[in-house]
Nucleic acid binder design. Structure first.
Lengths: 266, 266
DNA sequence: CACAGGGGTCCGGAATATCGGAATTGGTCG
DNA sequence: CGACCAATTCCGATATTCCGGACCCCTGTG
């Protein structure tokens, strides 16, 4: 195939290195499965020829991007990825400022606190401090969730205009595990505008049953929302007065963080 | 080149996917530089032809393994690596058990505590809880240090026999930033045997000036050292009685952790 | 306004990574 | 021990990716 010959059908791959894509697909597969996989899994999940699969896996193994598990016949993500991931996160200077703020807010509220950023068209959880209470945690650091699953995510996308949002949402919205997340584009957009205008976002029983969340936007110097702080708590600790307290606390903490990263201190 | 033709010079690459290796080298380069780099940096650091470099970078960018920074002309490690890294670490079930132990030991001692594992032939820091005191931290989570830089690392390699150690050490030992780390293979091996027999490792002023470290091994059911807990503190908080306290605390915590992951509770 | 320089894309020929299948190894079970 | 199945490596032909260089575009500058 001479690059993008003749008929030029609408395929969206102008020039992309095949084996790199396949290597990445192998990592993606491991990410989905969340458990070690064998070479033959790779072969028939991705349709790569046997010998090629072995070659790719060898290359990745040599560089420690994947590692052979002790059973000798399965592979999983390797330590090099952990190293790289940590360097990525260290590079985000927002995180340096945010770490103490997140801890502090956790201590102040006694609830689980998360800091998330926008990664392309999903929300990515970057930091978390857990509540001392024995409650369920909604998500893991490093997890990536669709916009319609989280209140904080609504804030993160609030800088986009309706056209972009419509396209993005219709492409990325998914049913939440509990089936309670909103699935209507217009409705979600209403949320987004409302939350942004109000200065905080909240949600109850949508992402997880019997749990709620309040979130506030972290703004940079230009007024863009670069991150969101959220507090997650079980239903019974989100009632009346308690809820107001939490809202006030996240908003204050997010404002504090915004100022630290250069927002005007209005 | 027909694979490993003719003369068979001693190069150790039997069959390896070129573009994947190059993609990895790009990530490695970013890891070294620790700062966003431009395409031309890549081109002349790695000697890749221009068009190929662009192709690789595009592929990596599309998959979010790297991201274009806001200046539009430089790239750095992307969020996908963070996701993958977090999945890697979540998969290590040792870490699930270790997290509370590390926190607890930090609270009990008031000093910075780290949990490290062996990654091939280096020590990899997997968890850290910082001391509330305003002291310098030696290393970052995700950092990878040679065996001769850390007391904990000596424990991690203590299962290998002398032959293996000699080879590994002579290959991986490096001068520490402060120039105080031991650089003699035999001496380091003596440390390794000594520390293992004694049940804990310690070091003062070697890795960092005016700071010391005590570490204890975490063992699995077969008596192999699978991880090491270490406490890092400034010199003046490592004297006499205080030091004994710390040793007792790490040893106890490491023993606790060992039992949790299935070591006999002797 | 013309020019230089750097970032980025496009293209055809040529080197080479890929593919299918055969060969080899390794482990399991009767 | 020998037969069987799966996992893994080896190999030569060939389809593909890669290379070098021409080209484009933007910006700054003499």
């Amino acid at each position: 195939m001479p690059r993008d010959s003749s008929v030029a059908v609408g395929n969206a791959a102008p020039q992309t290195s095949r084996s790199v894509v396949r290597a990445i697909e192998i990592l993606d597969l491991m990410m989905e499965r969340q458990t070690p996989i064998g070479v033959s899994d790779v072969i028939d999940a991705l349709g790569i020829p046997k010998s090629t699969a072995y070659e790719l896996i060898r290359t990745l193994t040599e560089r420690r991007y994947i590692e052979r598990k002790s059973d000798g016949r399965s592979y999983f993500l390797g330590p090099k990825l952990f190293e790289l991931g940590m360097i990525y996160s260290a590079q985000i200077d927002l995180l340096k400022e945010a770490a103490p703020v997140v801890r502090d807010l956790r201590d102040r509220t006694g609830e689980t606190v998360q800091l998330s950023i926008l990664d392309n068209d999903h929300m990515l959880v970057m930091l978390k401090e857990e509540s001392p209470h024995p409650i369920r945690i909604i998500s893991r650091v490093g997890s990536r969730v669709p916009v319609n699953w989280a209140a904080a995510a609504r804030l993160l996308v609030s800088d986009f205009d309706d056209t972009v949002l419509k396209e993005m949402l219709s492409r990325t919205m998914r049913e939440s595990p509990t089936g309670l997340a909103k699935m209507d584009v217009a409705e979600v957009i209403t949320d987004i505008r409302h939350f942004r205008a109000r200065g905080y976002a909240s949600e109850l029983n949508e992402a997880n049953e019997h749990a709620g969340c309040v979130a506030a936007p972290v703004m940079d110097g230009l007024g863009h929302c670069v991150a969101a702080l959220s507090v997650v708590a079980p239903e019974h600790r989100m009632e009346k007065g308690k809820r107001e307290e939490l809202i006030q606390a996240v908003v204050a903490a997010a404002g504090d963080l915004s100022r630290r990263i250069g927002a005007p201190s209005t």
